[in-house]
Nucleic acid binder design. Sequence first.
DNA 1: GAAACTTGATATTTATAAATATCAAGTTTA
DNA 2: TAAACTTGATATTTATAAATATCAAGTTTC
Lengths: 147, 147
Amino acid sequence: MIESPDSPIYTISAAAKILGISIPTLRLYEKEGLIIPYKKESNQRRYSPTDLNRIRCIRDAINKDKISISGIRRILALNPCWDLMKCTVEDREHCLAFQDHTKPCWAHNHTTGICGTKSCRECGVYTNSATCDGIKRSIISGTINSF
Amino acid sequence: MIESPDSPIYTISAAAKILGISIPTLRLYEKEGLIIPYKKESNQRRYSPTDLNRIRCIRDAINKDKISISGIRRILALNPCWDLMKCTVEDREHCLAFQDHTKPCWAHNHTTGICGTKSCRECGVYTNSATCDGIKRSIISGTINSF
DNA sequence: GAAACTTGATATTTATAAATATCAAGTTTA
DNA sequence: TAAACTTGATATTTATAAATATCAAGTTTC
């Protein structure tokens, strides 16, 4: 775990400096449901190298591709989590995230199914969507491999 | 066909008046790849009631939900056309739309597979995406029904 | 054949999202 | 325990997307 790309080693100021953006911007992306930084017991944020890459993708989507934050949120909401998590029909029926299409599953309060026990930050649905074309690849796998 | 909701009966000025927007805005949405109005031989546009509904959804996405045009384009690009069109592995390998994730299939030049012969305006991939949650429903069907 | 439309293109306006600055109060570090 | 960080919240700036206005030239309609 130590020294892995998933180790949450950067403080918010270190992350901001590396990415060349301001601290409030990092907090904004989090409030908007695009990222889930690691949090210490004291509530302080820590960012991993993987987190930084995810944020770089978000920046490109916003600044290069001109996709709004709301748009990114909607795109993230299309990751077929029910497929990745192998939800049962029952699971899906009780899942707020499955019903909704406006925000990613991790922005919902999960109490049922596998998502009630799992940490979203570590979940494949979240990590899969570190790139925008990652969503399409999930959809492709879901529609092609499931026969 | 006559009097059906798919009859292209409105001129651009009539459509603009009904929707409460300007003519250049309608042309903008088309240029951005969000809509495909019917075109007469003389190149003049005609809009159907179904077209108007589609445009109302786009307007809501932009003005209420704050999704940028680029964002909508990216969302439309996630409609699993290969699944709806029952593309073969061969089809997919040669399909520019399948490779790409930035714009909807109808914004690509299709020459191979079933899309080479079909009119995109009449295609289920296009009509399916008249609402934003229509995309999610397509993804759900694709991932759930295909076993 | 004249009036009222359409076409595409360019220039301009306006509305607002994204980013930043700043704040008082709490935490970490050495 | 003092310096340098962090927290969330609010106010402000700035960058630009979305929408519109306007144009000359080509259609349509009666």
